[in-house]
Simulated scan of single mutants.
Amino acid sequence: MRGAIAVLLAACLGACASTPPRNPLAQWHGSPNHNARSAQLIVLHQTEMDSAQAALLTLRTRNAQGRVSAHYLIGNDGRLYQLVSEDARAWHAGAARWAGLHDLNSASIGIELDNDGHSAFSEPQLQALLRVLADLTARLDIPRHLIVAHGDIAPTRKHDPGVLFPWPRLAQAGFGLWPRAVPAAPPPRFDPWLALRVIGYDLRDPAAAVRAFHRHYRASEGDAWEPEDAAILYDLQQQLLQLPPTAEPMATPSL
């Protein structure tokens, strides 16, 4: 008798687990026209804390601004921790925008890098990052060029992972949008602001957007245009425009 009850209970629990949530106030007429919410880009952060263990505590509780989390944390020793399921929203992006997307928590995977904000990123950590980027982009079908910084998507508030982060190292492995070795000179009427917007930057604060661009592509913090910026921006814009038709563009939210 007990065995039969156990089997029945297990069957009921299994059925409940496989049934999607439904509103009891409505008649269910299921439509096949839907898909799971999925990440479209990956956002890199740095913890700016003393250790991975301190970061783990914060990411499982809160910081001064409230509760925070990320999908992954990579320690300075290369150890990889997962804190949030990839199909759930981690609270890592905050108020941010990129390429027309406003709710970046819903559209991204957040990866925290154990770093105090002043030190170079370790080789084991970078190797672990490259491995997880290869896994995520392949398994979740995230375009390999859509690896961005927290400072890119929130230029007025954030600067991480900072000027010491080795973006060229990621580019050598095929991740992130990066200028080619010898960028072509832009045409005479080239508009750097338009290119900055095409790349994805929010231009509501132009100086902050230029600082974020410089931090990512020039390892500097200046907010005034520099001589080589136009060539870099033109090359990045051309790379985006030359993506194959099978590469889907960033989806703009619609109501």
Score class of each variant (00 low, 15 high):
V7L: 15
V7A: 15
L8D: 04
L9Q: 07
S18A: 15
P20R: 08
P20H: 11
P20M: 12
N23I: 02
L25C: 12
G30P: 11
R37L: 13
S38M: 12
A39G: 12
I42C: 12
V43I: 14
Q46M: 03
A54H: 05
S69L: 03
A70P: 03
H71S: 06
L80C: 11
D87Y: 01
R89H: 07
G94R: 01
A95S: 15
R97H: 14
W98I: 04
A99N: 05
L101A: 13
S106E: 12
F121K: 04
P124R: 01
Q125M: 11
Q127E: 13
V132G: 07
V132L: 15
L133A: 09
L136S: 05
R144G: 15
I147F: 04
I147L: 09
H150A: 15
P155G: 11
H159P: 00
P166F: 10
P166S: 11
P166C: 08
P168L: 01
L170P: 12
W178A: 11
W178H: 10
P179E: 09
R180L: 06
A181W: 00
P183Q: 07
A184W: 00
R189Q: 15
D191M: 10
P192K: 02
W193A: 13
W193P: 01
L196P: 03
V198T: 14
I199V: 14
Y201N: 06
Y201A: 06
D202P: 08
A207M: 08
A207S: 14
R211M: 07
A212W: 03
F213M: 10
F213K: 02
F213H: 06
H214K: 02
H216E: 13
A219W: 00
L236F: 04
P249N: 06
T252D: 12
P253S: 11
